[in-house]
Design a protein around this nucleic acid. Structure first.
Lengths: 226, 226
DNA sequence: TCGCAGTGCGAACACCGTTCGCAACGCGCT
DNA sequence: AGCGCGTTGCGAACGGTGTTCGCACTGCGA
């Protein structure tokens, strides 16, 4: 059972994380300073070290939470979709990134120097869940038999790299569909990351229709459209 | 004509940039310190400010150079390709990112806080050149008539968003082919950025065959394969 | 030859992450 | 009930950062 001390500690820990998240949202990860966080919850900078061994540990916690929030958001949109669940999931992914650019940058931007996510640590698992959130619509299409398979024009299918089999096993997908899922995930991410980080700014126009159009085309291509 | 002073200044400027690049390659952008750069070329930290108004300006210079180098590398591979020029360009893009991860992170990772690339500044132009490097094979395919157009299965083509027309004009591409070029660019980038930043590490396997297979499939899909 | 713009430097400031030793607190055991 | 000690927090300090400022020096151009 949780002693009183443990409950207090948990509470303080959460307060620190919440304050850090606030500071992250306005100013980005590079500007997140422990001193500012400590001050905003009425603590001394040194006091934080009773809860996090260093700054990276705090960021790691935020990263894990971010992955979880993103995965949840995508899954929610996917399940609530009335039309094309795949497109709904992709749009939710994009919307979350644009709504939380600094958190998104923390998740998918420049990695923390020489930081290696511990294998099957909380961040690795959470990260995998984001990719997995796109899988169910692909499974559905595969069951319906509409899923794109092989190459167009009846060309000989590429021999599947063994990494694809690993991927298939990881997301619990039939190997034939793994290539499709992988392609979908990377294509969606490519568009979203370019837009979120400002590399599409030279189209000085709202990229939203472009993204929607692209996602719908992708869904038709892959055979996930209903 | 260039006075002696101007030549010396140019030379010192280049020396600073070269030293900064060296430090960037080992340690990454976050670890690049002006003091270390100054010391490595035998200068005082304050002296650097005669050449760059601040740290961000130095990074911006490195970014512009990085975009140029990447674009050049992609173009070189594309032109030297014997088989599929599109695949060759994509592979060169991936290879450059993996060979220069810290520079790649500077180009496409977390943006510098509240830094806005000046419109038609050196970085914006150079960035556009990277995307443009993928266009020629697409133009070729369009001329040959093999380029994928519309949606598969003869479904009604999406109305082209106006942003796509802007894109088409920017890269000097017929509007019908712009959607293909945009899709190609984002898809390639998505795969490469995920791999470079370590988000594919859980496939504890060499992702190279996966990337090659994906690029070839993409080329077949788009109709750029010879 | 002289003046002054260009160049470099040393010291300083404010901020950062992090460490250390000490003081206070209060939970849990006797 | 009272005590011991793990837990918590803090103040001060250290080494590092980017950046500023005023002063010295140099050598180009008039």
């Amino acid at each position: 059972m949780a002693t009183r001390r443990e409950r207090l500690r948990e509470q303080t820990s959460a307060e620190i994380k919440a304050a850090a998240l606030t500071h992250l949202r306005e100013g980005g990860g590079a500007a997140l300073s422990l001193r500012a966080v400590a001050l905003s919850i009425g603590m001394s900078p040194a006091g934080l070290y009773r809860y996090y061994p260093n700054r990276d540990a705090l960021l790691t916690d935020l990263i894990a939470d971010g992955f979880a929030a993103l995965a949840e958001e995508v899954a929610r949109a996917r399940d609530a979709a009335e039309g094309d669940a795949f497109v709904a999931a992709a749009l939710a992914y994009r919307a979350w990134a644009l709504a939380h650019p600094h958190e998104f940058a923390l998740l998918y931007g420049t990695p923390i120097p020489d930081y290696q996510a511990p294998e099957s640590g909380p961040t690795s698992n959470a990260s995998r869940n984001v990719g997995a959130a796109f899988v169910p619509p692909i499974i559905d299409a595969w069951r319906r038999g509409t899923l794109r398979s092989g190459t167009p024009g009846g060309a000989a299918a590429e021999p599947a790299p063994t990494a694809l089999k690993t991927f298939a096993a990881a997301v619990d997908l039939p190997p034939e569909a793994a290539a499709v899922a992988f392609a979908a995930w990377t294509a969606i991410h490519g568009l979203v990351v370019l837009e979120t980080f400002g590399h599409l700014a030279w189209l000085d126009e709202d990229p939203a229709p472009l993204a929607e159009s692209r996602f719908r085309a992708l869904s038709l291509d892959l055979g996930t459209a209903p």
